[in-house]
Design a binder for these strands. Structure first.
Length: 576
DNA sequence: GCCGTTTTCGGCCCGACTGTTTTCAGTCG
């Protein structure tokens, strides 16, 4: 039973209790437990074995007992009792926009609806028309919600969302009377996926901006449009749309609104609790004491008034950021990055040549790059057999001679076999400047096998980095089960880096793993794995992920000068 | 159900928009 399994069960209990009409605070406490467990860097089984469950935030005696029960038997009595009472199919109705627990309960009790299929049939047959609280517009809204649910994949990858949001932000900024436009929400916090986009703006005529916004190219549906707020759906790919909320806010309370709408919800709850403790109140219009405004214009003022440093958005997840005493001023920034050590060229499955990749890297202000083709096992990616790699080494070294102003290294992204051996012999790896080792096949093994396999690669003196350590593809493929804690410990001990693969389909390691790895002393390398020159820009998403893992400049290997990278490689070879 | 600088009971964050309402409940963020 994994952390995600436990979290899912607690969320199910919360949903069922909510449909049942239970006390909202009790419901919330189950959600809190689910979130705590889902966010854990360590394994819930291990924490349970230590008897430390009730030390987790939001986990009391009762929840600790239920987790124990779940881990031991695979079931929780409360959930089974609730499921016997309430049709399980009702849970899927909760994900329909505009449908919440109260409506679900009404549909069930008054019309016997038990599933999404039942609901669709009931709407089609006109069976909801005389149901209290379900007017024609509500029913139409629900029907559209179902349609949206069925064609949308749910959450949108950070990179996809980013490009849509930027386009809209620029369109808004160009409208007359608009003084300022900013991203908020989970996009600003750089979560790996976002559910919707939030934009804030300051404008002299808010209603006019709202009006114009709802008519922008790409808007396929207007969900709501009032004086200060509009909600629309914007198409970002064929048949795929994302909800975008725009709010027009007064300039004098922009900071309060920006803070409020950036979230996370959990972070904001904590912040408001701090306000309440001082006898103040915090909302999107400001931090106030009765009628008196204490702070509203900027985020910095609000945090300062509550005795906190300004907290960067990527940290606002209620994962310990309130205990920070100082501004994490040296949190990693894109301009700290000095090079990219993982990229492909036409020699394997890339689209550009060595020279083109080098020129693009120079444009981005880099000091060094490393060319890393696939090895022979990745046949589908035109991986290089040893002989071709030997010739490629010559080609890259020759190109490096010609290229000025940039150090060009030759490396590889060598496959890790199922048994932990590598695709190239050590004597060939020894000729390379930097070696990243990755798993590309056979991800179906269990936790122990995957972990052992990766540890074997780390033990090799020529392996300098583990590429995309969990192999996940966001919204497409689950991470393979692997013990990141064990990997990070060995990486730290042997002087091996762990990659944050910056491609927004991967972002692997992910934020929580990044933080765990850093805490265990492992070096982190952020690489784009670029297969074309424009993909070098994905570095930005890697940096955001690193920030979400609380990384400072010094934690990241490729913020350092070239000589330090050489020393990093030499140190491991010498040690073993 | 959880929690404690007002501590073992009694709180637990707050406002906009919509639809179906004659004054508000439900949903959402």
């Amino acid at each position: 039973m994994t952390n995600a399994d436990v979290a899912r069960v607690f969320n199910e209990i919360a949903d069922l209790l909510e449909i049942k009409g239970e006390d909202a605070f009790r419901v919330n406490s189950y959600r809190r437990v689910a979130r705590t467990v889902a966010d854990l860097a360590g394994d819930i089984n291990e924490i349970a074995a230590r008897g430390a469950l009730d030390q987790l935030p939001g986990v009391g005696k009762s929840s600790a007992q239920k987790i124990q029960e779940l881990l031991a038997t695979g079931r929780v009595a409360l959930r089974d009792e609730l499921a016997a009472e309430i049709p399980f199919g009702l849970l899927e109705l909760l994900s329909i926009p505009s449908v919440g627990p109260k409506k679900v309960a009404t549909l069930w009790k008054e019309r016997g609806i038990q599933s999404l299929a039942d609901l669709k049939a009931a709407i089609a047959a006109g069976k909801l028309s005389d149901l209290k609280g379900f007017g024609p517009r509500s029913i139409e809204q629900i029907a559209r919600g179902i349609e949206f649910l069925e064609r949308s994949a749910g959450r949108v990858r950070l990179g996809d969302a980013w490009y849509v949001a930027e386009r809209l932000r620029q369109a808004l900024a160009a409208m007359p009377g608009v003084q300022r436009v900013e991203h908020a929400g989970s996009l600003r916090r750089a979560r790996e996926t976002v559910g919707d986009l939030d934009l804030l703006c300051v404008a002299s005529d808010g209603e006019a901006v709202i009006q114009e916004f709802t008519c922008l190219p790409g808007v396929v549906e207007v969900l709501a449009a009032g004086e200060t707020k509009a909600s629309v759906r914007v198409e970002y790919a064929a048949g795929q749309s994302i909800q975008v909320d725009l709010r027009v806010v007064p300039e004098q309370s922009f900071g309060a609104a920006w803070q409020y709408f950036t979230g996370s919800k959990e972070h904001n709850v904590r912040l408001r609790e701090l306000a309440v403790k001082r006898g103040w109140s915090l909302n999107e219009y400001g931090l106030t004491e009765g009628e008196r405004i204490i702070a509203a214009r900027s985020e910095e003022e609000i945090y300062a008034a509550l005795g906190l440093p300004w907290i960067p958005p990527e940290l606002r997840e209620d994962r310990g950021e309130f205990e920070l005493k100082t501004i994490p001023a040296d949190l990693l920034r894109l301009e700290h990055i000095r090079g990219d050590l993982h990229m492909h060229t036409t020699a394997s499955d890339g689209r550009n040549t060595i020279e083109e990749m080098a020129a693009a890297a120079k444009q981005r202000g880099y000091k060094y790059i490393c060319i890393t083709e696939h090895s022979a096992s990745s046949a589908i990616a035109n991986g290089l057999r040893p002989e071709r790699l030997r010739r490629h080494i010559q080609a890259v070294r020759a190109a490096a001679e010609r290229i000025t102003g940039l150090t060009v290294w030759i490396g590889t992204e060598v496959d890790i076999h199922a048994d932990g051996t590598l695709d190239y012999p050590d004597e060939l790896l020894a000729e390379l400047d930097f070696v990243t080792a990755s798993i590309h096949a056979g991800m179906g093994h269990d936790l122990e096998a995957n972990t052992r396999r990766t540890l074997a690669a780390i033990a090799n003196p020529y392996v300098n980095c583990i590429g995309h350590p969990t192999g996940r593809l966001i919204n497409e493929r689950e991470a393979m089960p692997i013990d990141i804690e064990a990997i990070a410990r060995e990486a730290a001990r042997t002087g091996t880096a762990l990659e944050i693969n910056a491609n927004y389909y991967r972002l692997d390691l992910k934020d929580q793993h990044v933080r765990l790895a850093r805490d265990l002393g492992a070096a982190i390398l952020i690489s784009t794995d670029a297969h074309a020159v424009d993909q070098l820009d994905m570095m930005y998403f890697g940096v955001l992920t690193a920030r979400r893992g609380w990384l400072r400049r010094e934690d990241v290997l490729n913020t350092r000068p070239a000589k330090d990278i050489r020393a990093f490689v030499a140190a491991k070879r010498k040690r073993t």
